[in-house]
């Protein structure tokens, strides 16, 4: 179990400061790219709640990302004025419901079955959108307008403005991070982390572990839906590819590369992978070859990811400070 030590907190604050300052120096293109990365980070953090903290290897998490995005586009895409509060509430509750249904079926299995089942359900949703002409089929679906965030007729954030959108997403990212660190510190989180370590024993100590896993699954699914909602609002264009298993695979990659079982790891992983995806095609058309090589390298030599590296470095240099702390 990792503890957030003081050097890590300082590191995270530095990162946050960089993100806050970035739009002032970055070009419009890169501001948009970082916005996209932060949206994906929300998604990968939610996946980490399953993989890294609950021990549930979901290979279909992209489904909830896609469902969130599609729900916004389908339910509100044609409206001239989209009420942010309404659209967000409805999208998240329906995505949560989908996660509850899928989770309820999947939680009854474990190990390989769980991996395969989550994958298969994701494929089911993928084909649902892929084959339905009403929702755009494989061409995807457009949104005319962005949600309008107003409070008592006053506009709070203008999502049509790329800078505003950037800070809006950054606020969500910080919010999700804080929310998850809160539930992980709470009694609920303690049980989750123990389930990952030894489910049988946790059951014998009096916890109905399937319920805890299910709640974790629903929380993760809902947050993934939030990321999808933001993505749909950002790009105004959704395709079934968002739900595909390649997306789920890449998301797992981001979590592992960044470091599972930490909340900031997936963010780092997402930044690296997306920047590579953006950068490598400049060199070669066959950049996925390099991507594959990096994944293999990570699996064989860096199983704890970059966060693991950061921890071992910070422990080496600051070991006196954090000995005797626990939590």
């Amino acid at each position: 179990m990792h503890t957030v030590t003081r050097p890590i907190i300082i590191f995270l604050c530095l990162c946050l400061a960089l993100l806050l300052l970035f739009p002032m120096v970055g070009s419009a293109f890169y501001t948009g790219l970082v916005t996209k990365i932060m949206i994906l980070s929300i998604f990968t953090i939610s996946l980490d709640l399953l993989i890294g903290f609950t021990g549930l290897v979901s290979f279909g998490h992209a489904a909830f990302f896609g469902i969130g995005a599609y729900l916004l586009a389908i339910l509100f895409g044609d409206l001239e004025h989209i009420n942010y509060w309404w659209s967000l509430t409805l999208t998240l509750s329906l995505t949560g419901l989908a996660a509850l249904l899928v989770g309820w079926l999947c939680i009854r299995t474990s190990g390989i079955y769980f991996i395969m089942l989550t994958l298969a359900f994701a494929q089911m949703f993928f084909y649902f959108f892929f084959e339905s002409p009403r929702f755009g089929g494989d061409d995807g679906i457009f949104m005319m307008n962005k949600p309008e965030i107003t409070l008592a007729t006053r506009q709070l954030v203008d999502l049509d403005n790329e800078h505003d959108f950037y800070y809006f997403v950054l606020a969500w990212l910080v919010g999700v991070y804080l929310f998850l660190s809160m539930i992980l510190r709470a009694p609920f989180g303690h049980v989750l982390i123990a389930i990952k370590a030894n489910e049988q024993r946790v059951r014998a100590l009096g916890y109905s572990t399937p319920h805890y896993k299910l709640v974790s699954f629903v929380i993760a699914g809902t947050i993934a839906g939030l990321a999808g909602f933001l993505e749909a609002a950002h790009t105004s264009f959704i395709t079934p590819a968002y739900l595909g298993w390649h997306e789920s695979g890449m998301a797992i990659m981001m979590v592992i590369l960044g470091g599972m079982g930490t909340l900031f790891g997936p963010v780092i992983g997402t930044f690296i992978v997306v920047l590579l995806q953006d950068f490598l095609p400049n060199f070669t058309e066959h950049w996925k070859l390099i991507m594959g090589g990096i994944i293999i390298f990570v699996v064989l030599f860096l199983p704890n990811g970059i966060a693991g590296l950061i921890y071992s470095i910070s422990n080496r240099f600051f070991s006196r400070e954090n000995s005797g702390r626990e939590g």
């Binding site: 809160m182 100590l205 009096g206």
Partner: peptide, 16 residues
């Protein structure tokens, strides 16, 4: 983990 099972439920999300 053993001791915490004295709570009626550990589905408590807010206080550390």
């Amino acid at each position: 983990i053993g001791a915490q099972s004295c709570l009626i439920t550990s589905m408590r999300f807010f206080r550390p």
